[in-house]
Amino acid sequence: MNKEDALTVLEKLAEPSALNLPADASIGHHADDQSFVYLLATGLALRCKYTEDGERQVCRVYRPGDLIGLEMLAVTDPSLVIETISPSMIKRIPISRIRIAQQTDQQTQAAVMSLLASEVMDGQQLKISFGTGSAMRRICRFLLWASHKDQVALPNREKLGNIIATTTETASRMIANLRRDGAISKNPVMPTIMQINRAKLCKGAGDAQQQTAA
Results as ranks from 00 to 15, higher is better:
D207W: 14
Q103D: 06
T42M: 07
L143C: 07
I95P: 09
A135V: 07
I95H: 00
N20M: 04
V152W: 01
I98V: 00
I82A: 14
N187P: 05
E169K: 14
A45W: 05
V81R: 12
I139W: 05
G131Q: 15
A214L: 14
Q209E: 13
G204W: 12
G54W: 12
G206Q: 12
I139F: 12
Q151L: 02
P22R: 07
S88E: 00
R180E: 14
K12E: 08
R157Y: 13
D66R: 04
D207R: 15
D32L: 15
E11G: 02
I82S: 08
R173P: 02
A213Y: 08
Q210W: 15
M113T: 10
R138D: 03
R92K: 15
T51A: 14
I90H: 03
P94K: 00
A45G: 06
N177V: 03
A23L: 08
R56G: 13
I193H: 04
A31V: 03
A205M: 10
E71Q: 12
R141C: 07
P64F: 13
L126K: 14
G131V: 09
I193S: 03
A183N: 00
R99E: 11
R92N: 09
R173S: 04
T76L: 11
Q210A: 12
P191M: 03
L44H: 07
L115H: 05
E52S: 11
I90K: 06
S129Q: 11
E15S: 10
P64K: 10
T212S: 15
T42G: 06
L13P: 09
R137H: 13
P94L: 00
L10Q: 03
C202T: 13
R97D: 05
N177G: 09
N156Q: 11
S114F: 03
Q124M: 11
I175C: 02
A199V: 11
A18W: 13
L13T: 04
S114G: 06
S172V: 01
D32I: 07
V112I: 01
Q210V: 07
H30Q: 10
Q195A: 04
H30T: 13
I128F: 09
A153T: 12
I93W: 04
L46T: 02
T84M: 01
Q103E: 13
C202A: 15
F130S: 08
Y62I: 01
L201E: 03
I193W: 01
A111Q: 08
D207K: 14
T170S: 15
G131P: 12
A146M: 02
A135N: 08
L67Y: 05
